[in-house]
């Protein structure tokens, strides 16, 4: 079969191609360019092949940041997803309090990230911060600028405060979409509260929860601003996550080659995990 190909159709694609080129492709290619060469400025480049990639992948520093990052993201997901669902379940379905709850929930999401970092920094200061002072006052020694555990605790607490709302709002939207008849049917069957959650609410929320987990994974895996403002990656390197490490490498040490290689590795890790997660969820859906 012969198809007439209308060349004019290309005209409609050009704006998007130009936009994507400037927005994503050209900056990305610059990074690829840097990742394979060595430069000392003046636009003079030396070919290095995959040397920077090997160097980054074999460096203990990258391994450490990666492990910290994975640990942080895992803890964040384990706390925020169940907590978000629990809060959404407790929220009222109708009436005056719905809007009050929704506004209160949305508030943390509206605060700029560096403000969140600054807020928690002051809040957690052991001498003048309300949180830090209180913890010390009840007899627990707490100083997030000196103790690695306290630094982690504060960073996680801050992230939970900032982002659980997102999970709550998505889960709440999922819950609101369940027709009342489901609950009546379950009631007539004599199903327990727990059975209703496991067999009706959770399956019905699956789609929105997939999105919530994906969003929280990506955001927490790429977290930069809040811990940078709160701890600056310290004490020592204990809260230096991948983004913070990358910035230190690129802008602190000006190692453009290794930093570019690390960016690409970082990018592919995020892409790979998202792809695997999404494929698994979709496969599950089809069965």
């Amino acid at each position: 079969m012969n198809k007439t190909i209308k060349q004019g159709a290309w005209l409609f694609v050009i704006p998007v191609v130009v936009l994507v080129a400037f927005n994503a492709l050209i900056p990305l290619m610059t990074v690829v360019n840097y990742s394979m060469q060595e430069t000392f400025g003046d636009n003079v480049f030396f070919w290095e092949g995959l040397r920077w990639f090997e160097q980054v992948l074999n460096s203990e520093r990258f391994h450490d940041s990666f492990v910290r990052q994975i640990t942080f993201t895992a803890i964040i997901l384990l706390i925020e997803v169940p907590l978000g669902i629990a809060i959404a379940l407790c929220m009222p379905r109708k009436g005056f309090w719905v809007s009050v709850c929704l506004v209160l929930m949305a508030l943390p999401l509206l605060i700029p990230w560096n403000v969140v970092g600054a807020m928690w920094n002051i809040f957690a200061l052991p001498d003048i911060g309300l949180l830090g002072y209180t913890i010390n006052a009840i007899g627990i020694e707490y100083n997030f600028t000196r103790q690695p555990f306290a630094a982690w605790f504060t960073t996680i607490l801050m992230d939970v405060w900032h982002w659980t709302s997102l999970v709550v709002l998505l889960a709440y939207a999922g819950l609101s979409a369940i027709p009342d008849a489901y609950y009546q049917a379950a009631k007539i069957d004599g199903a327990s509260r727990w059975a209703v959650f496991i067999w009706i609410q959770l399956p019905k929320m699956k789609r929105v929860l997939t999105i919530a987990i994906l969003l929280r994974f990506m955001d927490s895996f790429m977290i930069y601003t809040e811990p940078f403002v709160l701890t600056g990656g310290g004490p020592g390197n204990t809260t230096t996550f991948l983004s913070i490490d990358l910035v230190k490498l690129a802008l602190g040490q000006f190692d453009l080659g290794p930093a570019a290689a690390m960016s690409l590795i970082y990018f592919f890790i995020v892409l790979l995990i998202c792809w695997v997660f999404y494929t698994l969820m979709m496969k599950n859906e089809q069965q």
């Binding site: 027709p179 008849a181 009546q184 049917a185 009706i200 399956p203």
Partner: peptide, 12 residues
């Protein structure tokens, strides 16, 4: 027992 206009079954 009750049957509704919407098709109500346990989704999973």
């Amino acid at each position: 027992a009750m049957v509704y206009q919407e098709f109500i079954n346990y989704p999973n």
